[in-house]
């Protein structure tokens, strides 16, 4: 089950071209291991959703991927081997670079290998089509050999997978509650048994009780079906509970990446630390909390050096001049981009 399934290296995404470009995502290096839940945390404007769209190459213009690689390594005997013929071309041991796929290959790749549950998924269903037709639509496109009966059967199976009785297949989205609509979206994401599921703020529109039910279900399904998850949210307390590893983004860069437990116990980057102390606890002693002073940076006028330095309580001399690189910090394969934790190496700025 182990080993990387997705390797992102040096990924850069701009909005716009030339000098007017806003650099939304910069020099991202990130690895998703097989069967893992990777949490991606950050505030609005930190580039976390942009990253998700770049991985799937769904970036709407003026978003442009200006550099880097996103290497996908399908499992031996996995779905890619089974019917992803279009992908075979580049598939050696090295996997395939998603950024180099042609339109046809991309079409076969999306949903088959990586599926996405969108932000505000509650409104992502088409109101004038029944759940059945929306669930079978993807099967029609990707599994043309399936018969209508087989497709219906699969749709019913998918619904029961997420805990909705199969007789709701004929329902329209407005007849379902918010939580059920969200489950339908998850069922749809699992329709082709993808290797990777990207969740972009999947539960923000739901209340906490429903949120927990859906996430537990997802965790259970991951155990049954063995897919990997990239879970994007601003709610780090949720990630701490549900993900294995967490990458924290700020100003378009990853500032820290470590196992969830390590982040919780000992966050190295001052921003991670501040973020953790922005959530009042439900149990334990009541403490005076301060959040983080200042405001998140504007991508149009990023501070020089480390983007966090104007808000950082521990800023030192090099912080305002050079960008710290993501470097190994301590055991457990954790990395942090902060001058406090790096030897003064040559940072690019």
């Amino acid at each position: 089950m182990n080993g990387p399934v997705l390797e992102i290296s040096g990924l850069n995404v701009d909005y716009g071209l030339g000098d007017a470009a806003v650099r939304a995502v910069r020099d991202i290096d990130l690895t998703l291991n097989r069967g893992e839940i990777l949490g991606l945390a950050g505030e609005s404007g930190s580039g976390k959703s942009t990253l998700a769209y770049a991985i799937t190459r769904l970036l709407p213009p003026p978003g442009v991927i200006t550099g880097g690689h996103v290497r996908y390594r399908p499992a031996e005997g996995g779905p890619a081997d089974r019917n992803g013929d279009a992908l075979k071309a580049g598939t050696g041991g090295a996997g395939v670079d998603i950024l180099e796929l042609g339109p046809e290959q991309l079409r076969a790749f999306r949903w088959q290998e990586i599926s996405l549950v969108f932000q505000g998924a509650m409104n992502s269903l088409n109101p004038v089509h029944s759940v059945r037709s929306q669930l079978t639509d993807v099967l029609v496109a990707h599994r043309p050999e399936m018969s209508r009966a087989a497709r219906n059967e699969r749709a019913a199976e998918l619904l029961s997978l997420v805990g909705i009785p199969a007789d709701r297949l004929g329902s329209y989205p407005h007849q379902l509650s918010g939580g059920m609509r969200q489950r339908v979206m998850i069922a749809m994401a699992l329709a082709l048994e993808p290797e990777i599921v990207l969740l972009d703020e999947p539960t923000t529109a739901l209340d906490v009780v429903m949120q927990r039910q859906i996430l537990r279900q997802l965790v259970r399904l991951r155990e049954e079906l063995g897919f990997s998850v990239v879970f994007i949210t601003h709610d780090i307390s949720l990630l701490l509970e549900f993900s294995d590893r967490i990458a924290i983004m700020y100003g378009g860069r990853i500032v820290e990446q470590a196992a969830a437990k390590d982040i919780y116990r000992d966050a190295r980057h001052p921003y991670s630390h501040g973020l953790l102390h922005s959530f009042p606890a439900l149990h334990g002693p009541r403490r005076e909390l301060t959040g983080i002073p200042g405001s998140p940076p504007d991508l149009k006028g990023m501070p020089t050096g480390c983007a966090f330095h104007p808000r950082c309580p521990k800023a030192i001399a090099p912080c305002s001049e050079r960008v710290p690189a993501l470097a190994p910090a301590g055991p457990g394969n954790r990395t942090v981009a902060c001058w406090l934790h790096t030897e003064h190496r040559s940072g690019d700025s």
Binding site: E43, S44, D235, S278, P280, G291, I292, S295, P296
Partner: peptide, 8 residues
């Protein structure tokens, strides 16, 4: 609001 400024 962004999580880091809520407490403020």
């Amino acid at each position: 609001l962004d999580v880091s400024i809520r407490l403020g």
